[in-house]
Design a protein around this nucleic acid. Sequence first.
DNA 1: CCGCTTATGTCAAAGTCCTGACATCAAGGA
DNA 2: TCCTTGATGTCAGGACTTTGACATAAGCGG
Lengths: 153, 153
Amino acid sequence: MEDRKPVDPPHPARDVTEHVGYRLKRTAAALRGAMDKALREHGLTVPQYACLELLDQQPGLSNAELARGAFVTRQSMNVVLRGLQDAGLIFRPASADHGRALPAHLTAEGRSRLDAARSVVYAIERHMVDTVPQRRLAALLADLDRMAAALGG
Amino acid sequence: MEDRKPVDPPHPARDVTEHVGYRLKRTAAALRGAMDKALREHGLTVPQYACLELLDQQPGLSNAELARGAFVTRQSMNVVLRGLQDAGLIFRPASADHGRALPAHLTAEGRSRLDAARSVVYAIERHMVDTVPQRRLAALLADLDRMAAALGG
DNA sequence: CCGCTTATGTCAAAGTCCTGACATCAAGGA
DNA sequence: TCCTTGATGTCAGGACTTTGACATAAGCGG
């Protein structure tokens, strides 16, 4: 145990840029920026795209459920939904049959717009993921999950 | 039917929540939320804390340099700096001797506030990092770096 | 020396997002 | 039954961030 010569303690690195949190934010910011730039050419924002993607895979999600899925508040998701609805990309019934939750669904145009945007987003993600060794990918996903769970995500 | 065949293709997972980008955003959002809640008790926002941390390790950074380090625009960082300056946590000379960049420095109060906030932030990060197996940590950092670099971060 | 490029700080305007608050609705227990 | 709890949709206000633009200043090559 005393053969350990580095003066700096291994855990709290002296440089913040060495911290996991900093790297995490850095990578997330880079991904957000790349997606933002690519989606702008398709007339979509990142939250809008996330909303469409969620609705494609789980039709009928309510505003609150979409908000949790996109990691924003209900209020923010509400304006996103209004925008998508005004653009004719999604459809919501005027009133709910059960409870207050209004189930949202993609329109035909919404689905085609999503397909177009999906191709560029997937290309970005592919380019990003291809830089990590394939056999580490599962571990990476698991680690991200564990960290999120530890923080109450 | 055969035993447990991988019906879903391994690469473009059908469920967005399986994508690396989604997990990344999820984890980053969880960390941001935890930090936001903890820092609020210290009267600091996350960008303000990031700014103090950067200035502690690299005194004399300019507005633009801090903005790049905190992954925000120069305009946003300018607002952050004004707030920190009004609160007496940082100090900037009124005019620059060389160029237009105004080097910022922590005040004594800024340093003490940072020390207090740092303890809770480090506790959060420690709790998060402790969930990933120690021998994977270096690989995790490397993978995050590679992904950010691939995206031009 | 002069023009060009790059980088910086700043301002104005808009958009985005969150906090706080309120009313509604379903479910469960006293 | 009542009513407490939890979840949802919505509104208003403010805080934060970004986009676009402009003027200034250093570096460089002609």
